[in-house]
Design a protein around this nucleic acid. Structure first.
Length: 844
RNA sequence: GCCGGAGUGGUGGAACGGUAGACACGCGGCCCUCAAAAGGCCGUGCUCGAAAGGGCGUGUGGGUUCGAUUCCCACCUCCGGCACCA
């Protein structure tokens, strides 16, 4: 018999698909567009091309492709495109080391990615392929930048930024991990630079509110984003330094504790700090402290439980609620990035303020008291899980209670006082209700070569001037030296930098920063829809047809940044009238990471798995099916070589079954009658497999159990095979089973599925067949096994007709000698009957 | 500390509140073979028993239920994320 030669079968089908352009879909209005079919946009996160694809990529595209096939066979017109996130640091670092142009390394890698995706047989519409580093793409990245700029959503600001001394580049806060550069691990320093930002904080509220609009997103991803945005409600209150006439607004989540403020703290980076101490006795000490903090690695500053340090400024500010003068300090536990960079310190009701007060011997004034025992508040407090505490017990007291030492607010509950104090402050014009976010604006400037140039000019006369749309793209210049010397490598291309102002015609110079690669990947899903458009980034009608992405698939590691940025872009573009979508991704599937020997794969551990090795040996179908069989795809999984072999053995079995049945079907005229006995049993099994596979597929892509169901079907066909080959209805049943198995396995092993189906059906194309439907009548067997329990413990099993009544089942249970033995003279209290399944006899 | 998620055989993992361990890996036995590879069949939670048949079993302790891996409460452990956020 012809043996299962995966390479040969896969090459055949890949050639057919490439020649036919099987997976290409047309846009509305174009020839080939099918207006009657519903659309489905299936998209995996685009890869960053570096070297060769790894197993993680294989998993993403194996999962996504299974979904694409499943949707197609449910009648959808599936758009399933591919591209490359091809700007970025590794290519540039390689260029610095070797002098090779980043474009050369990147394009070589893209070539290798493309070849492997084709070898994996992923059903992609290659006519829509794109790379973010090509001028025809980044032209429109720049175009979007200009639109954001016009709208005031892109702005320039001096900001203390994180500086990686090794890469000589600015890092976004998000790229600093434990005070170290996310990419190279070097401890970061602080620097002040003029930077470009996107005003994502303007969208904080909508980014939160629109979680409502999403269909199925994993709950934990939403939670992570919600925490990242970090909305908190409170009040903004202004403390004033009368001596200097400087106002210090602070944000507090606890306006109810305002009367307990006994001192005031500024962040070391606070802009008013210098004015506060200039010419005073404290000036020297404060300056020294600030310098010391600046020298400290950010990581140390973030250590929990670190002793509080700070310096008194010798100044006071006025507490607006009671007119008290309270001393001002500078301390590094206050962060410039959050709120206003200044806090009112309430040591009695905040752990950090308390620690600081202890260290500097400052007064502590309690303003909330544990409600008295037996009082209404106490009962309420207890019911909310607050441990009962004696009056004046340990401070800081973080719970709720009754207001004390708070003037006219004494005696009421602190929750009520919260609103009343805010109202009173507003009336008195001393403060207002306020909402604060943890989310910060998105820093997009990079002092890097390998990115999209920011399309802005600086003219001596006109100032900052956007590059006119018709002059886009601003092409990257060719340069010799890629290493950043504290400025962008683009600055070295002097001919490029020097240009003409489009407004006055005078000399102007170009912006030399490039954009964060997250900008490129925040809109690529729109460009796929209309990749050849030279007049606009996309046609609005076309985008309206395909958007939103119906199923987005990718690693959890992008759960926050990429997804949040793409959501922001979508909303901003829609607000500006270029798009009609509030959310880019209706459904998100976050898949887990593949490990090897229980550890994340990495070159240093030497436990990497190269997909090409396995595809060489077992074929793409085996590798893809194995990855989907390892476990629920949203979870991680540990790769074992034996596992792939097991799946390969199964596919080979299915192959042999198909061939054997095809050979026999040509000799014996199959009888389409359902047959009886084993033939019927096998047909039932096939219908059961269809039912099970379909349900688990729809229920959150439980691919492992889908594949298991197909394996069960094939095993059953094998066991019954010899008895069925002789008779026509048996051959028909076997043929049905083999066709069903091929059909159900096709989303995972598309080549093999198509090949077997073609041979069994006399040339039909499986990918054009609808997904099989189970016949409900066939799911019911004529007899059922009834389990009989006594007090919940299984005591016997008996066969009964499928249509047996409850009374029949009870009679069966009573007749069982095994059950009798266990009744042991006890009184039967009641019987629970689950029809056709189980009889539970409850005794006393 | 906070927020997510998870604890089931030797292993990966299955189980609408209803026969726990599907499917697969591994292991053992048998068949085929001169032999091997490939393939096929059977067995495989622990435990007592020759067998029939028992007992115990889903991290721990409680609860709801005729019946709990599943629902509720408390705790333990592991993984992921965030963390001086005012």
């Amino acid at each position: 018999m012809e043996r299962y030669d995966a390479r040969k079968i896969e090459a055949k089908w890949q050639r057919i698909w490439a020649e036919e352009g099987t997976w290409e879909v047309a846009n509305p209005g174009q020839p080939g567009f099918e207006p009657d079919r519903p659309k489905a946009y299936v998209l995996e996160m685009l890869p960053y091309p570096s070297g060769e694809p790894h197993v993680g990529h294989l998993k993403t595209y194996a999962v996504g492709d299974a979904i694409a096939h499943f949707r197609r066979r449910h009648g959808f017109q599936v758009i399933h495109p591919m591209g490359y996130d091809s700007f970025g640091l590794p290519a540039e670092n390689n260029a610095i080391k070797t002098g090779e142009h980043p474009r050369a390394a990147t394009e070589a890698s893209i070539e290798s990615f493309r070849r492997q995706f084709q070898e994996w047989g992923i059903s992609l519409d290659w006519s829509r392929e794109l790379s973010t580093h090509s001028p025809s793409y980044y032209r429109w990245t720049q175009w979007i930048f200009l639109r954001l700029f016009e709208r005031g959503l892109a702005y320039r600001a001096m900001a203390p930024v994180q500086w990686c001394p090794k890469d000589a580049t600015v890092l976004a806060h998000e790229q600093v991990i434990d005070g170290r550069c996310e990419r190279c691990g070097t401890p970061v320093e602080q620097r002040n630079l003029e930077q470009w930002f996107f005003r994502i904080t303007d969208y904080a509220e909508r980014l939160l509110a629109d979680f409502e609009r999403l269909e199925t997103w994993p709950e934990h991803v939403i939670t992570m984003q919600r925490n990242w945005i970090g909305r908190s409600e409170g009040a903004e209150v202004t403390f004033r330094c009368e001596e200097l006439g400087v106002d210090f607004p602070v944000f507090t989540t606890r306006p109810d504790t305002l009367f307990g403020a006994t001192f005031f703290v500024l962040a070391p980076e606070h802009p008013e700090l210098e004015a506060m101490v200039a010419g005073t006795a404290a000036e020297g000490a404060v300056r020294e402290y600030v310098n010391q903090v600046a020298r400290e690695a950010v990581e140390e500053r973030g250590d929990e439980g670190r002793p509080k340090t700070g310096v008194a400024l010798g100044r006071t500010v006025t507490n607006p609620v009671n007119g008290e003068e309270i001393p001002v300090f500078v301390a590094d536990y206050v962060l410039m990035d959050y709120g206003t960079g200044a806090v009112m310190a309430v040591p009695a009701h905040d752990q950090r303020d308390f620690d600081f007060a202890q260290a500097y011997d400052l007064p502590v004034r309690q303003v909330i008291r544990q409600a008295k025992r037996g009082s209404a508040e106490s009962a309420a407090a207890v019911s909310e899980g607050i441990p009962p505490k004696q009056d004046g017990a340990e401070l800081p007291y973080l719970g709720d209670g009754e207001m004390v030492n708070s003037g006219q607010f004494d005696g009421i509950g602190n929750r009520e006082a919260f609103a009343e104090i805010v109202g009173w402050l507003a009336d008195q014009d001393r403060g207002s209700e306020a909402v604060n976010y943890r989310l910060r604006d998105w820093l997009v400037s990079r002092q890097r070569y390998w990115g999209a140039p920011i399309p802005i000019l600086y003219c001596g006369k006109c100032g900052m001037v956007p590059v006119p749309d018709e002059q886009l793209p601003v092409l990257l210049p060719e340069i010799e030296d890629y290493s950043p010397q504290g400025r962008s490598p683009l600055a070295a291309a002097e001919d490029w930098v020097a240009t003409e102002c489009p407004q006055c015609g005078g000399p102007a110079s170009r912006e030399t920063d490039t954009m964060d690669t997250f900008v490129d990947s925040s809109w690529y899903f729109l460009r796929y829809l209309d990749p050849g458009n030279e007049r606009a980034p996309w046609d609005r009608e076309v985008a309206a047809y395909w958007m939103p992405v119906d199923q987005y698939i990718g690693g959890v590691e992008h759960a926050i940044l990429h997804l949040m940025y793409a959501r922001f872009f979508t909303k901003a573009l829609t607000d500006m009238g270029h798009l009609d979508a509030q959310e880019p991704f209706a459904n998100l599937f976050a898949q887990g990471m593949i490990t090897r020997d229980g550890a994340k794969m990495s070159k240093s551990r030497g436990n990497t798995v190269s997909p090409s090795d396995f595809i060489e040996r077992y074929g793409a179908d085996s590798a893809r099916t194995y990855i989907c069989f390892m476990g629920p795809p949203e979870r991680g999984g540990d790769w074992t070589d034996e596992g792939v072999e097991g799946v390969h053995r199964f596919l080979a079995r299915l192959w042999r079954l198909g061939l054997e049945v095809a050979a026999l079907a040509s000799k014996v005229e199959p009888d389409p009658d359902r047959g009886n006995g084993e033939a019927l049993a096998l047909r039932r099994k096939a219908h059961w497999a269809i039912e099970k596979a379909t349900r688990d597929f729809e229920r959150g892509f439980q691919f492992n159990t889908v594949i298991a169901a197909v394996m069960e079907l094939v095993n059953e066909a094998y066991r019954l095979k010899d008895g069925l080959l002789g008779e026509p209805s048996g051959v028909a049943a076997l043929s049905f089973a083999a066709r069903t198995a091929a059909s159900l396995i096709q989303p995972f092993a598309p080549h093999l599925g198509c090949e077997i189906y073609e041979r069994l059906s006399g040339g039909e194309r499986l990918t054009e067949q609808p997904w099989p439907q189970a016949d409900p009548a066939m799911l019911q067997s004529e007899t059922v096994t009834v389990a009989i329990q006594v007090n919940g413990k299984l005591r016997d099993r008996v066969e009964a007709p499928a249509d047996a009544s409850e009374a029949d089942l009870v009679a069966l249970a009573d007749a069982s000698p095994n059950v009798r033995r266990h009744l042991d003279g006890k009184e039967v209290v009641k019987r629970v009957v689950v029809p056709g399944k189980l009889v539970n006899v409850v005794v006393r």
